[in-house]
């Protein structure tokens, strides 16, 4: 009875939404034109990167804050539950994982650098770095992370702190995150570099901290 009601409700919702989508007039504000018009002053030439780090930089700053918060909660909840997976010790797999991880680091740097002109950027590069760390961990090369040390802590927080510092430094001009035209490109690259490191560490940490085992504190 309850199941039928929920299924009918979801179907009715979908039908109403689809009817509304089919009826929807074209949007009154033409955002791509606005972005194109302002692209020359943004410091980068790829529109998505310009939106992420310049026009809507505030969103991106809050996003890295949300990610950091999620990782802090994961750490606070406590991750050790004694379920330590035995690491595989296949030398073939480990050698290949090392090889692939070094190539992935290279790809991450390229993605970061390419982000100014073509699809790419800090998020993609950070995701590739995190994937490399997860690959190394699953192959048994990289042990699971326990308590983060000082270096790891600063790496995790670097992206948010650099972003926040730049935002505060630019606050003297009146507007949050309004880059001066001449320095916009280098400021964006600096922020993206810090973001890449932090994103890679945070995303990898979400996996590697959870994967830690055989602690006795729970």
């Amino acid at each position: 009875m309850k199941t039928a009601a929920i299924v009918i409700g979801a179907a009715a919702f979908a039908a109403t939404m689809i009817a509304a989508l089919l009826d929807l007039p074209p949007s009154a504000i033409h955002l791509p034109r606005l972005v194109d018009a302002n692209l020359p002053v943004s410091g980068v030439t790829h529109p998505v990167t310009a939106v992420l780090l310049n026009f809507r930089g505030y969103d991106t700053m809050l996003e890295i804050g949300v990610l950091l918060l999620a990782l802090l909660i994961v750490l606070a909840v406590g991750t050790h539950d004694g379920a330590d997976a035995a690491p595989t010790a296949d030398p073939m797999l480990q050698t290949f994982a090392r090889l692939a991880a070094s190539l992935m680091a290279l790809v991450a740097v390229y993605l970061l650098w390419a982000g100014a002109r073509q699809p790419g950027g800090a998020f993609q590069a950070g995701a590739v770095l995190a994937a490399a760390a997860v690959l190394l961990h699953l192959a048994g090369v990289l042990p699971a992370w326990r308590e983060p040390g000082a270096l790891l802590r600063s790496g995790l927080a670097a992206g948010f702190l650099v972003f926040l510092f730049v935002a505060m430094a630019l606050l003297s001009q009146g507007t949050l995150l309004q880059y001066p035209h001449a320095a916009a490109g280098s400021l964006i690259l600096l922020i993206e570099f810090a973001l890449t490191i932090s994103l890679g560490l945070i995303l990898a940490g979400l996996f590697l901290f959870l994967s830690g085992g055989q602690g006795s504190d729970s």
Binding site: V51, D59, T60, L67, A70, L71, F123, I202, L203, L206
Partner: peptide
């Protein structure tokens, strides 16, 4: 449109976290 694409990129990363 690059604006929703950037928003969705942000959203995907937050959804992962």
């Amino acid at each position: 449109d690059p604006v929703p694409q950037a928003m969705v990129l942000t959203g995907i990363v937050v959804a992962v976290a």
